[in-house]
Amino acid sequence: MRRKVLIHILALIALIWTVVPIVWIVLISLMYHHEFASADIHLFPHQPTLANYVRLLGGAAPDWNGTAQGPNAYGPLIREGLLNSAQVAVWVTVLSMIVAVPAAYALSRVQMRFRQAGLLTIVATRSIPPVATTIPFFALYQGLGLSGTKTGLVIAHMTITVPLLVWIGTSFFGGLPPGLERMARVDGCSRWRAFARVVVPASRHSMTAMAVIAFITSWDEFTFALIFNTGTPAQTFPPALSSMFFQVSVPTDVASATVLGLIPPLLVAGLFQRYIRKVNLVGL
């Protein structure tokens, strides 16, 4: 009995530890600045409002006492950032999938020489820290005119996503039934058709998971985005948030911007949750 009580207390602590920081920022984003700045800080807003979000998205919303308030000055920055992030993430996803899927297939299922060596080399590139690549990328991009462009950021993100997808993909394709291609070949498919018409459709769920992971990885990447694209028209969401965070001191506005940036990846992850479940977490 004492053990049961203890376990429930520990579970409660684990719950608080896990969710309170996130709940807190969401609650702040729903408060008027006036209420947040008042002397007594409390968890739940007395006067919950979506005004911070409305003003960030370009609308006008009255303040707590009814005074008119125009759109947030940082709205355009955040909105452009979200759009740019989405564009970059989609391109990264598409391009990474195009190159990584065939490679992952070959490295896991084709009876080829150099398989182990190839896989090891690709996985080894995953252990190179971003700081080691930002410096040369920065220097090279200045010469190539890619600094501050979405193209440049897409390329930089692919240094992370491509090895990651190959690694995850090999375990996915390796899990398919062993005789799949042989059956297709007996039915008259060429090697390529066995891959393109049989293996790819059979693993569409796993490939959805791979695409989702590429999207989220690109969306969440901070270092490259900060260093290459801060203050440029191609600025993505993380550097936009960073400028807002370090320049304004209205915590309620920053909180709502942060929450806005969390929505797309959580939405994508939520929609495709049952596919991502299967990913070996430690591969990430």
Binding site: A100, A103, Q111, G118
Partner: peptide, 10 residues
């Protein structure tokens, strides 16, 4: 065949 598929990544 395998190397052809891996070539783009390489």
């Amino acid at each position: 065949f395998g190397l052809l598929l891996v070539a783009p990544v390489a």
